[in-house]
Design a protein around this nucleic acid. Structure first.
Lengths: 145, 145
DNA sequence: CTAAATTAAGTCGCGCACGATTAAATCACA
DNA sequence: TGTGATTTAATCGTGCGCGACTTAATTTAG
């Protein structure tokens, strides 16, 4: 151990685990998402739209914690694939509404089985899941202060 | 709730929290890392080198769970900033050794205070940290199966 | 001893993330 | 009513992540 400061040790660093765990989970999703031709962030955005269709870019951004510099190109790709439409709000031309197309709505059914498959892959008990959720929510809340 | 499948609901999805928490933590690090001019992945790689200097690209990759297609450009940037050197192993010319420069070693001292500051920012108890680590380790292990 | 297989690093292309900036529309209010 | 401030989306540049591939060196198997 050439480490002077034990706190710098990677094994003690929550940051490193979080960074890796997040990428591992994305990798776990990949084979499932590949079947429906979606990337992980695209899937997140569609989850938001399946929850509530016809949202503004800003509203999707607040839910996903992503800004227009990430969302605009992503949404354009979803539009090119015919999963969503992008239309200006005539009452306020600064705003862009995102609506699901029929294809986008139908895709929800194809994704129905993904959460259950992921739960199985993750290998966590319901109890562990609950604890993990709580800890992550604290971290997420801290970032917003 | 326009949601047919309750498992698809974002609030129930661990994936979404993990994805957000990971980015939030990166954002929490940013003001601290900006002072030393590092990105978050660069900091991770330097943590690995501060733990053990003189590693192969492959070894760093195993520790960080990153491949050469991510590491090579990142290491080149660190080399351009004079924090590491890249040198072929004369005994096996396929391999590239990464060594810290003096500047790279000195930078460790500047980063000494980062873990403690992050612990304060994260707002988690030691108990919560331990639980979080355990859950994340399970997820990370699942990804490797 | 050489041909095939393996290994390590690098290259390429795409899609995020995100800071910084811009442009346009709307709002506030003097 | 005009004008400066604010809001919203889009644009731009940089740096990851990662799948797919290439290149070069080394190992192995026959």
């Amino acid at each position: 151990m050439s480490q002077s400061n034990p706190q710098l040790n990677l094994d003690n660093q929550i940051c490193f685990r979080l960074y890796n765990a997040s990428r591992q989970v994305t990798r776990l999703y990949q084979p499932l998402l590949k079947e429906v031709g979606l990337t992980y962030p695209q899937y997140i955005v569609l989850l938001i739209l399946w929850e509530q269709d016809g949202q503004l870019v800003k509203e999707i951004g607040e839910r996903a914690e992503l800004n227009s510099n990430t969302l605009t190109p992503l949404l354009k790709r979803l539009a090119e694939r015919g999963l969503v439409t992008r239309s200006k709000n005539p009452d306020d031309e600064r705003q862009t509404f995102i609506h699901l197309t029929e294809a986008g709505k139908i895709l929800e059914q194809s994704c129905d089985c993904i959460p259950a498959q992921m739960m199985a892959k993750a290998g966590l008990s319901m109890e562990q899941i609950q604890l993990l959720k709580q800890s992550l929510d604290v971290l997420i809340a801290q970032g917003k202060r």
